[in-house]
């Protein structure tokens, strides 16, 4: 019985505290700027370690007393720290569990290649994309992006099927039909805008992951950026399903100029639609290479799970 009452009490408390929270949000926003500065100035040191005690008793004084919290404020500082430690431990293990060790025997090479790609971006890609962005308005650039995306339909279709995502494969087909016709060769995306049919991005790397294949060592590819063994290998079948890809068997003397040209346009167009994104990412990082590596692997794992 005690447990039941306790849980009910807890539930009540938490609700109240949320109401308080949201009130606080509104206050700090709607009132004068001086006031909102005050609020944050108070907030910041409190959420630190020990000062939390003060903060609690202050805010409680205004509201009805919550017996639960008051008892705690009578406890020693040490207890408070122990409790925080316990919570710290809990989060420590939560993030340790979530962490995936990235296999990285090629770190030296990968770091060098990251630097190479970085130079390539700043010296070549970014200036060109900047000029391109300056000349061509955003709407046609979006059209180009949509056009290439629409052409990748076979890739998404096959990989959805390979993962038994039949409904998604069907929706992809409907999207392709809609966008290629009403959307005029895929330049527009009426499937999404009018019929709320969203793309289901799947590639062969995700399919292999779906069947339980691990990522293998992380590899940074020249021009393409972060990848791993699984995804690098998957570029072969992916390329085969990409109408703009290089499909002629190797060894034939035919040149790939047209295909590389298309790839270049695709890439420049993509960068031109996201100016400053790379720079911002780079600035967020304390150490850029592991940041890129972990972000890539986390993102891929998420895509595989979906």
């Amino acid at each position: 019985m005690a447990i039941v009452l306790f849980s009910a009490l807890l539930g009540g408390c938490s609700q109240q505290s949320i109401e308080k929270e949201s009130l606080a949000t509104e206050q700090s926003v709607t009132e004068e700027p001086e006031r909102s500065v005050l609020v944050t100035a108070e907030e910041e040191p409190e959420s630190g370690q020990k000062e939390t005690l003060q903060g609690n008793s202050e805010s409680d004084a205004e509201d009805e007393p919550l017996t639960d919290v008051e008892e705690k404020s009578e406890e020693d500082e040490e207890d408070e720290e122990d409790e925080e430690d316990e919570e710290f431990d809990e989060f420590e293990s939560e993030f340790e569990e979530a962490k995936q060790e990235v296999s990285d025997p090629l770190e030296g090479y990968n770091r060098a290649m990251t630097t190479f790609n970085d130079k390539l971006y700043f010296w070549v890609l970014n200036p060109i994309a900047g000029g391109y962005r300056f000349i061509i308005p955003e709407a046609p650039r979006r059209g180009v992006r949509n056009f290439f995306h629409n052409l990748l339909y076979p890739l998404r279709f096959v990989n959805n099927l390979l993962q038994f995502k039949i409904a998604n494969a069907g929706e992809e087909t409907l999207r392709f039909v809609t966008n290629s016709t009403i959307g005029i060769l895929g330049l527009w995306d009426p499937a999404k805008e009018w019929f709320d049919m969203r793309p289901h991005e799947e590639d062969f790397g995700q399919t292999l992951g779906f069947y339980g294949l691990g990522s293998g060592p992380h590899i940074v590819l020249p021009f393409f950026g972060p990848s791993n063994l699984r995804d690098t290998f998957s570029m072969v079948p992916d390329n085969y399903l990409d109408p703009t890809g290089q499909r002629k068997p190797l060894g034939q003397t035919e040149s790939y100029e047209a295909e590389y040209g298309l790839l270049a346009i695709k890439t420049i167009n993509k960068v031109s639609l996201r100016p400053g994104e790379y720079e911002s990412l780079k600035k967020d990082a304390v150490d850029f290479y592991p940041f890129l590596r972990d972000s890539y692997e986390q993102m891929r794992n998420k895509q595989i799970k979906e």
Binding site: F95, A98, K99, A285, V286, D287, P290, F291, D294, S295, Q298, M299, N301, K302, Q303
Partner: peptide
């Protein structure tokens, strides 16, 4: 996009 801010900082810091 599946990338946890805390997780990436943790591994950057510990590295």
């Amino acid at each position: 996009l599946g990338v946890s801010i805390v997780l990436t900082y943790r591994s950057q810091f510990s590295g």
